[in-house]
Design a binder for these strands. Structure first.
Lengths: 324, 324
DNA sequence: GACCTTATGTCAAGCGCTTGACATGTCAAA
DNA sequence: TTTGACATGTCAAGCGCTTGACATAAGGTC
């Protein structure tokens, strides 16, 4: 591959001159500029970004750590993040932590070594100090850690909305299935909002907590089956993610429980499949695209040494479909 | 951040010595090695991978270009690729081309500039010459271009299996919905295998081709609706992807067509949602994990200047579920 | 004519790391 | 004592690019 030096020689100027036209700095005559450009074309010159990163001390690279990109929620989120990041000139390095503490740690070290300009954390098995020792700008999804800026949807409000809709639909016996509450995630507020709202109406929902293993769907089905068998009178259910809701539909179908006639179901996230499911899922919609943009903007501003507010809670909306 | 020089000074040796212990080369006494390691720990030293990439002329970075990571097929594929790549020490840069020729071109340039060690192409809007000018190792998914190695499932066989199953189930009027055949993709062989098998039995399926826009699901529904209305007697349908099959289920449900009683449906890919759908989808399974590993291995060998075979067609299996 | 401004370039150090070439010391065998 | 084989380090060039510091020349202004 030709280097800047090769271009300079061929164009009959010095590397500084070539660098100047490359970076639009200093004074360069039109004719020189054109000649340099022509030579670059001729030689198929592509500036070596690695070398540039080294001198500029800026890699224009972002790291993103998530449980797995195969999960539709993270897939959609990452998609938005990559789209927006690339429009700002950033590249995206993805890291599937698989919710493994060790891997998460290794990825953090790797990202540091690669001098990424910032990291977006969507996987949270680590303790506070691990984050803090990271010197790069960080933004977190759905978790508040020390003084690291975070982005989340209004989880509490989402829970409230779900409760109110089930109540309005006349549900008498309500249940809730949520992820593992032992992880310190803001997503847990969905459950809080939901439960507290019901309690205001003197109702106590049956609550079931799932394991931390995002990948084991068969486990989901087992737990849901148990819930539905132990509480056959349940007529309203709030699942803390659309994936869980999909599993509920599946189990109900096998049990012959009709949705929404016998059981009304609400999910959370509004991933694309919520609408594609049969029946399509009523859900609490997170504004994923805005959340993604916000996260990238925060990193961008942090990288420019700006100080940014810590808390970024975006509004949710309820999307009514066929399950209610 | 401390540099190798800082470590050297603090440890009372030269940078060469530190570099040697970092890379395990040459002779280093146990005591020196330990001292250096201790100092690195103390200073929280992290070797600058950018600088290392520059001298080694090896970035240990792979680029992956796909239409969108939000699509579950690519999400799952990318997940496997990242998992395996990271086990070999590679990092993964993702690029969502959105099936946009211009973007695809820009990403290719970007990856070249960043001197990635290889690129995995899963998005194919570009013409042959664009690929060939790329000097890095490339591997392609589902497309044969010049002498670039490619990985795909046995698409033709998949089509045959689907046809045979529908026939065995006694379907009399069969239809097929496929992606856009104008793109030069190996996936088109699914349709070939399917149609040719039916013709051997003197049947001619109704075939509908979808647009190239992977993102416009509402378009899918419209087309499917039209097919089902124009051919109300269709009792067997092969969709060339599970996503399409999901849309079919949705439309059938709205039309009151019972699956599998009135219509038997087969998808392709076996993405996770195929099993989660209601009814769960019978589908042709691609061995995604092996395909992912194979692609990474190919890149790895290409990067080591090995020559590798061009064609890598992996076997498919049919997974029977509730839609047949 | 002296001085300033603007235009157009060149020089060379430095970013953090690797590595071939070279020096020095130690020790056992001849 | 000499020699050779290790063992343990150091020197310095180079990877490709950026950039502050420094020429040089051409016009303008007073």
């Amino acid at each position: 591959m030709p280097t800047i030096k090769d271009v300079a020689i061929r164009a009959g100027v010095t590397v500084t001159t070539v660098s100047r036209v490359l970076n639009n700095r200093g004074y360069i005559s039109q004719s020189t500029r054109e000649k340099v450009h022509r030579v670059m074309k001729e030689m198929h010159y592509q500036p070596n970004e690695i070398a540039r990163s080294l001198t500029r001390k800026r890699s224009m690279m972002l790291g993103m750590i998530i449980p797995t990109i195969a999960h539709p929620f993270f897939g959609e989120l990452t998609n938005y993040i990559e789209n927006y990041a690339s429009s700002l000139g950033y590249k995206l390095l993805i890291c599937n932590s698989r919710m493994d503490k060790q891997k998460e740690k290794e990825y953090i070290d790797m990202l540091k070594s690669n001098r990424v300009d910032g990291v977006i954390m969507g996987s949270h098995t680590l303790d506070v100090e691990e984050y803090v020792k990271l010197k790069q700008p960080i933004v977190t999804f759905d978790r508040r850690i020390a003084d690291i800026p975070y982005v989340s949807s209004d989880n509490y409000k989402g829970g409230v909305l779900a409760a109110e809709l089930l109540l309005n639909k006349g549900c008498k016996k309500i249940a809730h299935i949520c992820g593992n509450l032992s992880l310190d995630l803001l997503g847990n507020k969905r459950s809080e909002g939901f439960i507290e709202t019901l309690r205001h109406r003197s109702m106590e929902p049956a609550v079931i907590e799932l394991g931390t293993d995002v990948f084991e769907h068969s486990d989901y089905e087992r737990v849901i089956l148990k819930l539905l068998q132990e509480h056959p009178d349940v007529d309203g259910l709030f699942a803390s993610s659309d994936i869980i809701a999909m599993n509920v539909i599946k189990v109900c179908s096998s049990l012959g429980i009709k949705i929404p006639e016998q059981l009304k179901l609400i999910g959370y996230d509004d991933i694309q499949f919520a609408a594609l499911m049969n029946p399509s899922i009523t859900t609490i919609r997170q504004p994923l695209e805005e959340m993604a943009k916000l996260a990238v903007d925060l990193i961008d501003r942090l990288a420019a040494a700006e100080t940014v507010p810590l808390e970024h809670i975006l509004p949710v909306t309820i999307v009514e479909r066929e399950t209610t």
